[in-house]
Amino acid sequence: MSTEIGTSPGDPELDARQAVVAPEHDEERQVEWKTEQHVYEPHRVGLPPLGPYVRELWRRREFAFELSRTTLRAQHFETAFGKLWLVLNPMLLAFVYFVLVDILRHGHRPHGYFAHLVAGIFLYYFFSGAVRESVKSVVGGGRLVLNTAFPRTLLPLSTVITAFWRFIPTFLIYIPIHLISGLPVNLATLWIIPIVLTIAFIAAGLAMFVAALQVYFRDVKSFMPYVLRLWLYASPVLWYPNEVPNHWEWILKANPIGGPMAAWSVVLQKGHAAPPVDMLTGLAWAVGLFVAGALFFMSREREFAVRL
């Protein structure tokens, strides 16, 4: 991305240069700061300069929101029926799984199981929706990527925003189910906010990763439904986190969303605070995946313009 001259902090040579130039050209520099200046240089270790990159990203955040808004508008999100349609799909899925699990458990289901299932599926839909849609984000950005210089991370990040907006109405539908099931609402319920945030960061990290990967392997998209379906089964949605036999517990830890999803169930079902272990493993995964996904994406994004 572009670098504004003399704005990278802590660059000794630049500082020295400014010290030399500044006295004579003080006024001129002032003017220069107002006009746009860009310096394009080879990317060091394949990465664009991070400071300016993040600044540009922030400056163009409106693009990500507008793209998300446009996508939602195309799906008729602004109408009541459009929102209902969004809820219908996960809701039907919840019914299918409810019947299935009810048969498998011979009708012995714990109190509030349906609420657990619905809440789990809705949160999982937020995660899987963000990742699934992001696969197409860069490849689908075609001409924009070919013709405009902007931080490409905006494209997958925008799909996470879209998935979040789609999550909101599903959560509203969950509220009456929660209340009818007689599940607790208390101060600990506020834990759902950090849980959703953790999931959002994990989703964003993966979104950037798969979006970049799709440029190189155009069939990543076709694998995603299978991966995401298996991932659902490996997450505490159909089952309770405390039902996991000891020798399978590693699955919960190895699953990036395992911790937060388990905490989601504990908070909503029991009204307890989120278990620190679950939150911390989730946080570690979130930071790790977000940074890794972002670095991978940014190290590849120079090539997008010639690979599409």
Binding site: M1, Q37, Y40, P42, P48, N147, A149, R302
Partner: peptide, 12 residues
């Protein structure tokens, strides 16, 4: 700025 240089420098 769509395709950063491999070597050299562009100032705009």
């Amino acid at each position: 700025g769509i395709l950063p240089p491999t070597i050299g420098r562009v100032e705009v």
